[in-house]
């Protein structure tokens, strides 16, 4: 597995982490009602979306490099 392939695995893990942290923040918001937690949740979801976009751009730019 090349660095390119491992980087995609890493980006996928990061997206999942951001979604998880976002869900955790939303659960905290529902429990305590703090609006900062809701903002934090939105930020996490935004980061997750940003990472997905980055992953696609990365794939497009490095398409000439092997996955092996």
């Amino acid at each position: 597995m090349s660095l390119k392939a491992f980087h995609l695995v890493f980006v996928t893990a990061s997206v999942l982490l951001m979604l998880g942290v976002g869900a955790w923040c939303f659960a905290q918001y529902r429990e305590g009602g703090e609006s900062s937690q809701l903002a934090y949740c939105g930020l996490c979801l935004l980061c997750a979306g940003g990472l997905v976009v980055y992953g696609r751009i990365f794939l497009k730019k490095l398409k000439h490099i092997s996955f092996l």
Binding site: L3, F6, H7, G20
Partner: peptide
Amino acid sequence: IEVGGLFWHFVDLVWIFLFPVMYL
């Protein structure tokens, strides 16, 4: 550099697991 980068990614991936487990 590719080999160094693979190690660096592994270290970062460990943190991706450590952070939610320890902090959240």
